[in-house]
Amino acid sequence: MPLSTQSQADDEQYVLVASLDNARNLSNILKAITFKDHAIFSATPNGLKVTVEESKCLQANAFIQAEIFQEYTIQEDLVGFQVNLTVLLDCLNIFGGSTVPGVSTALRMCYKGYGYPLTLFLEEGGVVTVCKINTQEPEEPIDFEFCSTNVTNKVILQSESLKEAFSELDMTSEVLQITMSPNQPYFRLSTFGNSGNAHYDYPKDSDMMELFKCNTTQTNRYKMSLLKPSTKALALSCKVSVRTDSRGILSLQYMVRNDDGQICFVEYYCCPDQEGEEE
């Protein structure tokens, strides 16, 4: 294992060292949030959080807990940097991202601190590639102030049933309208396209509905273009939790199971479309 021959002395210079036997466990989950180049990395002793934002209206977070990594050492309480996500993904797949079982790329990711590049050591079949990606000044992620006490409605669905709906959604519609209600139609996705409108209704007692907790009837519209990137996360996930708070902000939490059966989370926050509302 060439990666483990790194001397301990070297390691001590790094504020963050994270190793994975299978780089795909990281690249897959990062793909779920790739809709902009700039990604903010925040590492804490609990794990790594990667944030991507769009138009101050949409935020995607991928959480990779410390336990997912075979090695995870952090010298500070919070290590933050920003890198180009597309470049990082290209590097993680530098060996072609083979999906053949038994063949995987090992990864060791190191960061020395502010001003230093993010260094990736990638190894597959005895070949080691070292990639250095320049880091940028980390931006402050938007705080959507989405707090669980303000959640008015929440449903947890098996992703399977939402995947079908999202794959069929009428993309000529500018918005996706989400209705959550303690009464009929319980959970409804609506589109308003060129040829007419369409509704997808999920009854609260469906097998696909794991949890249904709706207190008030809420109908909000979200820009289709903003929600579209979330389908990448949906495709990878096995369960999804849909929540809205009193302001209509949408939180989509996806539970993603990786190749090794471990669980990671991807979260999307989206602001409602204000058009057509009183304000």
Binding site: S161, E164, A165, E168, S195, G196, N197, A198, H199, Y200, D201, Y202, P203, D205, S206, D207, M208
Partner: peptide, 20 residues
């Protein structure tokens, strides 16, 4: 002036398309 297609799917999922 609408033609409505309602698909009754497994797990109680109801898909309604109102086409003009």
């Amino acid at each position: 002036n609408r033609l409505t297609f309602t698909l009754h799917c497994k797990h109680g999922l109801l898909k309604t398309h109102n086409l003009s």
